[in-house]
């Protein structure tokens, strides 16, 4: 689609996430090169973002606030526990370091075992999907390691640029032209990151996977640049 063929009429539905896949891709391609349509889109996104204010009223149960705050309280205690560790005797600290070293070594051993199993084409304990960088980041790479029953997986990526606080990477599980979110993540300064992945359907029922850059919190459908892609 050329710049001359604006997508003004499709922008309202795009802002709502209601466009079908082909139309979405056409709009994204156009938006990438048309500042005027980007301005129009922001106006419709502002409208779409306010629709929730008109949601019919539903009363949350009285216990929900307590449940939420107690949930946070548990998370909050974790850092203070780690600070307490600094007051433990040195011997206990050394024991801790030893345990960590053993765990790290066993992890490394398990990873090598997985690689060997694949290389020897023995019955697979895990399935893996290699993901390659796009033109945006050709050096980026990733792998999705999926459990034997396909119920769980872990995405590991490397050499992706760290995103600012307003954006996150989002994994998409792709099947029959539909994209289901697999979760959002960011990477550390070294460009390395990981994400635990699960879905209602087995992960190995999705023939393809992609990673895009989305606003923090993720999007209902891909809106940003694709940075990684892979297929079974």
């Amino acid at each position: 689609m050329s710049v001359e063929e604006h997508v003004i009429e499709q922008l309202p539905a795009y802002a709502l996430g209601a466009l079908d896949e082909d139309d979405t891709l056409a709009v994204i391609r156009h938006l990438n090169q048309c500042a005027a349509c980007q301005v129009e889109l922001r106006a419709y996104e502002a409208v779409a973002n306010q629709l929730g204010f008109a949601a019919p009223v539903a009363e949350p149960p009285p216990h929900l606030k307590k449940r939420i705050l107690e949930h946070q309280a548990l998370k909050k205690r974790m850092p203070s526990r780690s600070r307490e560790l600094t007051h433990l005797p040195l011997a206990w600290g050394l024991v801790g370091i030893l345990v960590i070293a053993i765990l790290a070594a066993s992890n490394l051993f398990l990873w090598r075992e997985v690689a060997l199993l694949r290389a020897e084409r023995e019955p697979q304990v895990f399935q893996t999907v290699a993901m390659a960088g796009t033109e945006l980041n050709p050096d980026a790479r990733g792998v999705i390691i999926i459990s034997a029953d396909g119920k769980h997986g872990t995405l590991v990526v490397d050499d992706l640029p760290r995103l600012d606080e307003e954006h996150e990477y989002q994994l998409w599980l792709i099947r029959d032209g539909r994209r289901t979110s697999g979760g959002t993540f960011n990477v550390g300064r070294e460009g390395y990151g990981s994400l635990w992945v699960s879905a209602s359907d087995p992960l190995d029922s999705y023939p393809a996977f992609g990673v895009t850059i989305e606003p923090a919190g993720g999007s209902p459908a891909p809106t940003g640049e694709k940075v990684l892609g892979g297929e079974f």
């Binding site: 929730g52 949601a55 009223v57 949350p60 149960p61 929900l64 606030k65 939420i68 949930h71």
Partner: peptide, 28 residues
């Protein structure tokens, strides 16, 4: 809390799932 729960409930039509989503939102 009520606004978040209302959006979640009107999307999912499920009290338990809406509660879970509300908790997830405030956790986030």
């Amino acid at each position: 809390g009520r606004l978040v729960f209302s959006v979640a409930f009107n999307s999912t039509s499920n009290q338990a799932v809406a509660e879970e989503i509300t908790q997830d939102v405030f956790t986030r």
